[in-house]
Every structure is written in C-alpha cells, then in structure tokens.
Design a protein around this nucleic acid. Structure first.
Lengths: 116, 116
DNA sequence: ACAGATACCTTGACCTTCTACACGTCCGAG
DNA sequence: CTCGGACGTGTAGAAGGTCAAGGTATCTGT
C-alpha cells in the first residue's frame, strides 16, 4: 500500500500545529494527535515520539500549561491550555509561517527572475 | 525598528530552494545563496555553513551534478546543474511542499475560533 | 609591490527537533 | 483474568540547520 498521502513535517511546524489545536480548547496529548490528523483531512500524522517531547518543550517554555484531569474515558490525562505567552507566540509564529511559505512558494512557482 | 525580516528555514526546505534556483540554469554555490536572497526579496538568507553541505548532499544523491569552471570573475567555481533525477525530484517535492503548506495553512488559518 | 577586500569553497563543533521503538499504566469489555 | 485500547514516558540516533573559523584566488587602490 502506498502511504504517499502522509508526509513529514519540516522541523518547527509541529509546535505551531499543536498550539493551534490547543488554542481551540483544553485538550490532552493523545487527542491532539488525532485532532491534527483529522483537521488535515488525514494528510498529517503525528508520532507520539515527536508529540510528547514537543508538548514538554512547550510547557517548559511556558507556552502551554498542563493539568492532570480525568479524560472522557475515565483515565487520567494531561490537558493542555495556551498561556498568555503562548497565545502571543502562536500569533507571531503563525505570521512568520505565512510569510515564510509565501516567499518559498513564490520562489518555487518561479513567478519572477526575469534576468533577461 | 525591527530587522526581524530574516528568519530560519525549517529543515528540509533548503534543498528545495536550491534545486529550484539551479533549475534556472548552471550556477555556482556562492551565487545560489545570493539568488535565493534576491528572489525572496531579501527575506531569506542562506548561510554558507548550510548551503555547501546541502549542495554536497544533493550531489551525493545525484540530484545535482557539479563541474569546476571559471566564474565570471575569473575564479574557479563549481557550477551545478540538475540531473534528470533532480528534475523529477524537484517536481514531486514541490508538489509535496504545496500540499503540506496548504494543509498547515488550513489548520492555522482556523476561521473557526470560538464558534463550533 | 603590498594590503585589503571580495569571491568562492570547506569543515567542525554544537543544538534542536523528528523518527523509531520499547516500555508502563489505567480502564472497560468479553 | 486477560486483552486491547487510551494515555503517557524515555532513550537512541539521524538529519539538517547555526555559528564560526580557515583557506585560496583575483581585483583594486596606493
């Protein structure tokens, strides 16, 4: 079977996606992965091995805050929320991402360069 | 005033940019960096420390082929060209990049704030 | 002729983040 | 009880960036 419809994230994008998902409301790690997958129409899939370290990083940097609570299924799970700092960060980083992809897209599409 | 208009490339994008520039015609490393910078309207800048290793990687993978020739200024320089394999690769990777950024952009854009 | 700037390439130490994989716990259902 | 799924942790390693230093060739000004 061809798994051509899933591909790697360039480094750095994961944090963004996570923060974006968390911005939608408190959610625990396991569910974040599912949410991203679903929101991307199954195009993206996040490995636990990258997800959790990322969450820890973000928490360490005070961009997210986590609290243990029982999940819907009864198990304890760590629910994350954006901190104020996280919200700001998300905003500026989204903007950066947009500019970055604009510029790269521009080069890739080869819209210009008319060096005669 | 913020000269915040240069930012890091996420890993993996550099190869794409390089290949795209090389696709425009034989060119040596030093000039590639300038070209990228210029094509991105100064938004991107490529460090030599990432540029050359990237070139070597691409050459090693047979996506680029390099030849030593005198440059316009008389110095010897290594001019790179895309191989057939490189051209194919560039094409599929560009497509992947587009899809990837589409999807990420879609998630980030989230016109779906508090409303559910 | 010499100093300095600029074009051009190389390399190494370091860091961050992704992957793969293995392990552990708590729960509900059969 | 056992099993599978929800949920989390940790380690090892590769990849690909950053910074920073080094080296040589050519041009320019004096």
């Amino acid at each position: 079977m061809k798994t051509e419809d899933k591909f790697d994230l360039p480094q750095g994008t994961l944090d963004l996606l996570i923060m974006r998902v968390v911005a939608l409301g408190p959610i625990h790690g396991y569910a974040i992965a599912q949410r991203i997958q679903q929101m991307s129409r199954e195009a993206l899939q996040v490995q636990q091995g990258s997800l959790y370290p990322a969450l820890h990083r973000l928490e360490y940097k005070k961009l997210l805050a986590g609290t243990w609570k029982p999940s819907e299924t009864g198990r304890e799970a760590k629910f994350y929320e954006l901190t104020a700092k996280g919200r700001t960060h998300l905003k500026t980083e989204s903007e950066n991402w947009r500019r970055l992809t604009d510029v790269v897209g521009l080069i890739l599409k080869g819209t210009l360069e008319g060096t005669s």
